[in-house]
Amino acid sequence: MIFVFGGRYSGKGEYVMREMNVSEIAGYDAEYDRLKTAQAVRDLHLLIKKIMLDGGDPMAHIQRLIADNPDIIIISDEIGYGVVPVNKFDREWREAVGRISCYLAEKAENVIRVVCGIGNKIK
């Protein structure tokens, strides 16, 4: 598994397609069966939000995904560089994205941070 993250609109998807020989990136809202076989999935932060809104456990869901698809490239927005959100759900979501990103970074073979479309391999 490879974890790729960076600010919104920083060119992460294009980077993954160009540099990692990926022809198609699945959306976060794709069916689970599709994610199980996908080369890459985008918007992990939104997938986490969707699972939370559905009352599910996002960490368990992501753990299951990387067990079912151990070679997947997971792409996420960096969302932790701002003021603490006023709304409770947004605080919990931001925290969950941070914790799950830490987990993925620890498990990942490579971790890549994208800035201005340039990938910087930080692990």
Binding site: R8, Y9, E14, H45, I79, G82, P85
Partner: peptide, 23 residues
């Protein structure tokens, strides 16, 4: 664009434009 906040359409377009120009 790293604070996780969803902005109004005009601001999102502004962020998108800067991101594209940067790349």
């Amino acid at each position: 664009s790293s604070d996780g906040i969803e902005y109004d359409d005009g601001t999102e377009q502004y962020m998108k434009n800067i991101g594209a120009v940067n790349c």
